[in-house]
């Protein structure tokens, strides 16, 4: 329990060691700690950002799927519509052709009937003339009685 020069020496050593730590120990460790802290902060921020990006991407995927489904529906609708239209066109075309054919046939039939009538009329007129000739036993001048014949023909029409 005696005091001696050890005390003085210890004061000197105390400050030298403190100075050494201040100069060579503290700054590198503090620097490493600060750098690591900022690294960790960056890492956490990146993780948060990645999470947000993922959520965004998922939302986008859902949206795209919805759009694709929608457009597929559109395409199918359009196709169905077109098919219906094609069928409809074909049907109306067919109807038109059938109608036209019928009309043509009817026209032709009418013409033929007309011609037949005409012929019949002529023959009837001749028959009548021939009949009358026979009845009258004399020759009727066709030229003189043309008017008469024409009238007759008219009446037969």
């Amino acid at each position: 329990m005696n005091l001696n020069a050890t005390l003085i020496a210890q004061i000197v050593v105390f400050f030298i060691l403190g100075w050494f730590t201040m100069k060579f120990v503290w700054p590198p460790i503090m620097k490493a700690l600060d750098e690591r802290a900022s690294k960790i902060a960056d890492g956490l921020a990146a993780a948060d950002k990645a999470k947000a990006d993922l959520a965004l991407a998922e939302k986008k995927v859902v949206e795209e799927l919805r759009k694709a489904r929608e457009s597929a529906g559109d395409v199918r609708g359009a196709a169905e519509k077109q098919a219906a239209k094609l069928i409809e066109d074909a049907r109306s075309e067919a109807t038109r052709i059938v109608a036209k054919a019928r009309e043509d046939a009817e026209g032709e039939a009418a013409v033929a009937a007309q011609r037949a009538k005409e012929e019949l009329r002529n023959q009837v007129a001749q028959l009548a003339v021939a009949g009358a000739e026979r009845i009258l036993r004399r020759e009727i001048d066709a030229k003189v009685h043309a008017d008469l014949l024409a009238n007759l023909k008219q009446e037969l029409q």
Binding site: N4, F20, T21, F24, V25, I29
Partner: peptide
């Protein structure tokens, strides 16, 4: 109290351990 005396054992161990201290810390740093 005698300022002409110095404790060699205390000084030796104190210095050695002080140097060991800063060496350990310096190694880590």
């Amino acid at each position: 109290v005698d300022w002409t005396v110095i404790n060699l054992d205390s000084m030796f161990w104190s210095l050695s351990l002080g140097v060991l201290t800063v060496f350990i810390l310096w190694r880590a740093a």
